[in-house]
């Protein structure tokens, strides 16, 4: 190799595009953030499964087959099955009203919809207790008529609805703003009725965004703890959801049972993340702009 090309080679190695950081800094930063994530995200996730299987898979499965555990799983599924359709219906209605019409107070309405994200779940539960608890006006009357809300299923549903309230609407509004009204207007001029326009034009355009919102809503609904803890009364076998059961088992030092239930929910979280990532890769163009990586 001639001297000239050797010098050339050295120079090229020294050259760094002006938009890059120094190589040592890149390596350091990458290792740094991956290290922090390993300690904060990956380690806890692994611990859940390790502790669940501490006495073997048999013990873990047996703890889930216990009647109280089964009733908790059943309750969580019931609550989610009620909350998801309600939340989806609300999200679609709100997004339709907000993106297809111009009216005064729109910004205020959006602020109100987002409000639950800035309220502590415990405070949300507290609000429901104050409104529907047996010593409140409405609550007293409802309990006397045999329809208790607090310490019963309706309270858990309301609390879950509160904390998951903005999920679907927040996902749909930006997507529907971006898509505009032209397609719906075209369908109307062709003589289609309102419902027909919605099912044949709007819904196909927003289905993946809707699924994305419902997915996030589902994860939060099945895992909500703070708000439900306040309103459920934690009656074993009756108003104890899966997360509440985890707390009770943990406080009774039944580690394998607590972590087995936790592992079940962690699996759900992993499925949620996988589906969410798949949606982001596959249908990025049909989701809200900030999910497009």
């Amino acid at each position: 190799m001639s001297d000239a090309t050797l010098v050339d080679l050295q120079r090229r190695r020294a050259f760094r595009a002006p938009t890059n950081e120094a190589p040592w800094l890149r390596v350091l930063l990458t290792l740094g953030v991956v290290g922090v994530l390993a300690l904060l995200l990956f380690a806890p996730l692994i611990v859940v499964f390790v502790d669940a299987l501490a006495q073997g898979a048999g013990a873990a499965l047996a703890s889930l087959a216990n009647p109280d555990a089964e009733s908790a799983i059943w309750l969580t599924l019931t609550v989610t099955a009620i909350v998801l359709p309600l939340n989806a219906a609300f999200g679609i209605a709100a997004a339709w009203a907000i993106t297809k019409f111009d009216f005064r107070g729109k910004a205020f309405l959006i602020t109100l919809i987002d409000l639950p994200f800035s309220v502590s779940p415990v405070v949300a539960g507290l609000c429901l207790v104050l409104l529907f608890g047996s010593n409140s006006l409405i609550g007293g009357w409802l309990v006397a008529s045999g329809y208790p809300i607090i310490f019963a299923l309706p309270g858990i549903v309301l609390a879950t609805l509160f904390v998951t309230f903005p999920f679907v609407a927040r996902e749909l509004i930006p997507v529907m703003i971006e898509q505009g009204r032209a397609e719906e207007e075209a369908a109307l001029t062709l003589g289609a009725g309102g419902w027909r326009v919605f099912f044949t034009v709007t819904l196909p355009n927003i289905r993946w965004a809707l699924l994305y919102g419902v997915l996030l809503c589902n994860a939060r609904a099945m895992g909500e703890f703070g708000a439900v803890a306040v309103v459920s009364g934690k009656i074993r076998g009756q108003t104890a959801t899966m997360p509440i059961t985890i707390e009770m088992l943990y406080n009774e030092y039944l580690s394998v049972a607590a972590f087995s239930m936790a592992a079940l929910l962690a699996l759900l979280a992993l499925v949620t993340l996988t589906l969410k990532t798949l949606l982001e890769w596959r249908y990025a163009d049909q989701l809200a702009a900030n999910h497009r990586h």
């Binding site: 050339d8 120079r11 090229r12 050259f15 595009a17 002006p18």
Partner: peptide, 8 residues
């Protein structure tokens, strides 16, 4: 301008 480095 020094924004790219030539291959040779």
């Amino acid at each position: 301008g020094g924004l790219e480095f030539p291959s040779s």
